[in-house]
Design a protein around this nucleic acid. Structure first.
Lengths: 176, 176
DNA sequence: ACCTGAACACCGTTCAAGT
DNA sequence: ACCTGAACACCGTTCAAGT
C-alpha cells in the first residue's frame, strides 16, 4: 500500500538551513531536522545517504542562492556589498561554503559574475587571477569579521571600503 | 597518597594537534587524545573543562607557532610565503584559526609582523587597514586553496603571486 | 512505497571508588 | 592528588516490522 511522502528534499534542506543558523553546526542533528519537518530521524535516510550528504545539500542550496543574488551585481563594488550582506544574513552557512562539503559546480556558477566584473577591469587574459584575488579577499575578510577577529579596534566598514578601494586600484594598475 | 601526573597539558595539546591533522576534527575525540598520552578519557577533564576548551588550546598553540614563524619574516612577500607554508603544513589547524575558538590575544600577537610590514609600505596611519587587507586576502586564498576551490583550472602558485603583486601595488598607490 | 520503534555503536561527560 | 570503571545522555545509523 503506497503511502504519500510526508515531506520533500527541499523542505528538509530548508529546515536544515534554518536550524543551522539558529543552533550552529552542532545543533544541526538529524533528529532536530526530522522533528521540524514532522518525521522521525530514520526517514531522512531515504532522502540523504547520511548527515554529511545533508550538509552538502545545505551548502549547495546556500551557494545557489548566493549565485542568484550575485547575478544582479554588475561591478566588484556591488558584488562585494552583496557578498557581505549575504554572509551577515547566513553566517553559519557562509562558514561552510569554503569547506570540502562544497561542490565545485555550484561554486563555479556563483563565480561567474565575479569573472565578468574582473574581466571588465583587467581584461580577459587576467580575469581568472583577478577574480581569485577579489574572492579570496572578500571571503577572508568575511570569515575574519564573522569570527570576531576585528573586535580589537578600528572600524570594520572602513577596513572593508579601504580593502575594496586598494584592490581595485591594484588591479587597474596591472592592466595590460 | 599523591600520584604523579601521568601527562601534562602540553603533551595533551601536542597529541590533539597530531590527531587533528591525521583524522580531522571529527577524529579528534577525547578517547583518541587520551589514548595517545596513555590515560583514560575522564582524566582529560582534570586539565580541560571540556572538548571545546581542548580545541581552544589547540588553536592557541597553533596561532602561537604561526606567530613565532612570522617573527622572522620582514616584508609582506616573506610573510605571505611563511603563512602559506604553515597552512599547507597544518591544514586542519589552520582551518580552525579563524573560528570563534580562537583567542583574541594570540591573534593580535601574530598580527604584529603584518602590521609592521604594512606600516613600512603605507605608513603608520593606514597600517591597520592595510594589514587587514593583506591578512584577509591571504587567509581567504588559503581557505579556498585548502577547500579545493582552485581545482577547476589555472595555476594556483601563479594566482598567489599575482594576488600578492597587485595587492602591494594597490597599497603603494594609496600611500599618503 | 514510505515510515517508525527498537537496537547498536560511539562519543562527551560525570562521579563514586580506587591507589 | 590523580586516575579510572561504570554509568548516563545524546547522536548517527541500520533494519525488521508496520501501514
Amino acid at each position: 500500500m503506497p503511502s504519500p511522502n510526508r515531506t520533500t528534499n527541499e523542505e528538509v534542506v530548508a529546515a536544515a538551513r534554518e536550524i543551522l543558523e539558529d543552533a550552529g553546526p552542532g545543533g544541526l542533528t538529524m533528529q532536530a531536522v526530522a522533528g521540524r519537518v514532522g518525521v522521525r530521524a530514520p526517514s531522512l535516510y531515504k532522502r540523504f545517504a547520511d548527515r554529511e550528504a545533508l550538509l552538502a545539500a545545505v551548502v549547495a542550496a546556500t551557494v545557489e542562492e548566493l549565485g542568484r543574488r550575485l547575478d544582479g551585481a554588475e561591478d566588484l563594488t556591488a558584488i562585494a556589498r552583496t557578498y557581505r550582506a549575504f554572509a551577515h544574513e547566513r553566517p553559519e552557512a557562509f562558514r561552510l561554503v569554503f569547506t570540502p562539503y562544497a561542490e565545485q559546480e555550484a561554486l563555479r556558477r556563483s563565480a561567474e559574475p565575479v569573472l565578468r566584473a574582473a574581466a571588465d577591469l583587467v581584461g580577459e587574459e587576467d580575469a581568472l587571477v583577478a577574480a581569485r584575488l577579489f574572492t579570496a579577499w572578500a571571503t577572508g575578510f568575511l570569515h575574519m569579521e564573522l569570527a570576531g577577529a576585528f573586535r580589537l579596534g578600528g572600524d570594520v566598514d572602513e577596513a572593508f571600503a579601504y580593502g575594496l578601494d586598494r584592490l581595485r586600484a591594484g588591479l587597474l594598475a596591472g592592466r595590460r
